[in-house]
Amino acid sequence: MGVFTFESQGTSAIPPTRLFKAFVLDVDNLRMVTPHAIKSTEIIEGNGGPGTIKKITFGKDSQFKYAKHRTDMIDPEHCTYCFSVIEGDALSDKLENISTETKMMASPDEGCIIKTTSKYQTMGDFQLMEEPIQDGKEKASRLFKAVEA
């Protein structure tokens, strides 16, 4: 078992509190903007705070069918969100979970800087390659740009 960490940083012209609201607090509404990427979301357990488990069913443009996310921490005041993928075909039989922390911070141009750290906990002696991670980040970036527009 190993843990592989990947970090990324991006920018947006949208202020952090507004972006946090759209991508974290109102995330269930994203399926209306991008039905090809997200078909549905359903709260399995909880009320939206830490410990909440959501099932996300992906749309036709995704290589995956579904994922279950657990909210680990949510801090609207500091625009920070941590969640873990705990079930779904994205984990296959090689990953135990994926934990992600996203922070949105004000930038000098009134937009924001988005920092994301993802930790992939593998099973056995599986070695995670960076190429599939980059592919996933590119797809997420396209979804982000569509919602940002």
Rank of each mutant, 00 (worst) to 15 (best):
residue 9 Q to P: 09
residue 2 G to A: 15
residue 8 S to H: 11
residue 111 G to N: 10
residue 29 N to C: 09
residue 68 K to D: 01
residue 41 T to F: 06
residue 69 H to C: 11
residue 64 F to P: 05
residue 11 T to E: 08
residue 118 S to C: 05
residue 51 G to S: 00
residue 50 P to F: 00
residue 104 M to E: 10
residue 23 F to C: 02
residue 31 R to D: 07
residue 58 F to D: 00
residue 100 T to R: 04
residue 20 F to A: 08
residue 53 I to S: 02
residue 17 T to Y: 13
residue 90 A to S: 14
residue 113 I to R: 05
residue 39 K to V: 02
residue 68 K to R: 09
residue 26 D to K: 05
residue 61 D to C: 14
residue 48 G to H: 02
residue 30 L to S: 10
residue 109 D to F: 10
residue 118 S to Q: 08
residue 116 T to L: 04
residue 67 A to W: 05
residue 54 K to I: 04
residue 106 A to R: 13
residue 25 L to Q: 12
residue 57 T to V: 12
residue 21 K to V: 09
residue 19 L to H: 03
residue 67 A to L: 12
residue 111 G to L: 09
residue 72 D to S: 06
residue 65 K to A: 04
residue 92 S to A: 15
residue 117 T to Y: 01
residue 67 A to Q: 12
residue 58 F to L: 04
residue 34 T to A: 15
residue 98 I to L: 08
residue 19 L to M: 06
residue 99 S to V: 15
residue 112 C to T: 03
residue 92 S to H: 15
residue 20 F to E: 08
residue 92 S to F: 14
residue 67 A to P: 07
residue 9 Q to Y: 10
residue 42 E to C: 05
residue 69 H to D: 12
residue 81 Y to P: 05
residue 13 A to V: 09
residue 48 G to W: 00
residue 54 K to N: 04
residue 104 M to S: 13
residue 108 P to R: 13
residue 39 K to R: 07
residue 117 T to M: 02
residue 56 I to T: 11
residue 36 H to V: 10
residue 100 T to G: 05
residue 110 E to F: 11
residue 88 G to H: 10
residue 50 P to Y: 00
residue 31 R to M: 11
residue 116 T to D: 02
residue 71 T to Q: 04
residue 85 V to S: 04
residue 85 V to E: 06
residue 106 A to W: 13
residue 64 F to K: 08
residue 44 I to N: 08
residue 112 C to A: 07
residue 82 C to V: 13
residue 40 S to Q: 10
residue 109 D to N: 14
residue 43 I to R: 10
residue 27 V to I: 11
residue 61 D to S: 15
residue 70 R to V: 03
residue 43 I to P: 03
residue 115 K to S: 14
residue 41 T to G: 10
residue 103 K to L: 03
residue 41 T to H: 03
residue 53 I to L: 03
residue 5 T to H: 03
residue 97 N to Q: 15
residue 23 F to S: 02
residue 5 T to P: 00
residue 107 S to P: 05
residue 90 A to Y: 09
residue 78 H to W: 06
residue 90 A to C: 12
residue 17 T to H: 15
residue 53 I to N: 01
residue 70 R to F: 02
residue 117 T to R: 01
residue 27 V to Y: 10
residue 99 S to M: 15
residue 57 T to R: 11
residue 111 G to R: 08
residue 72 D to E: 15
residue 44 I to S: 07
residue 102 T to Q: 14
residue 116 T to H: 02
residue 68 K to S: 03
residue 1 M to G: 15
residue 85 V to I: 15
residue 19 L to P: 00
residue 63 Q to V: 11
residue 53 I to Q: 01
residue 14 I to Q: 08
residue 11 T to Q: 06
residue 42 E to Y: 01
residue 113 I to M: 07
residue 100 T to W: 07
residue 81 Y to M: 12
residue 83 F to Q: 02
residue 32 M to A: 13
residue 87 E to T: 02
residue 118 S to D: 04
residue 80 T to P: 04
residue 13 A to T: 11
residue 47 N to P: 07
residue 96 E to I: 05
residue 50 P to M: 01
residue 11 T to V: 07
residue 102 T to W: 08
residue 92 S to Y: 13
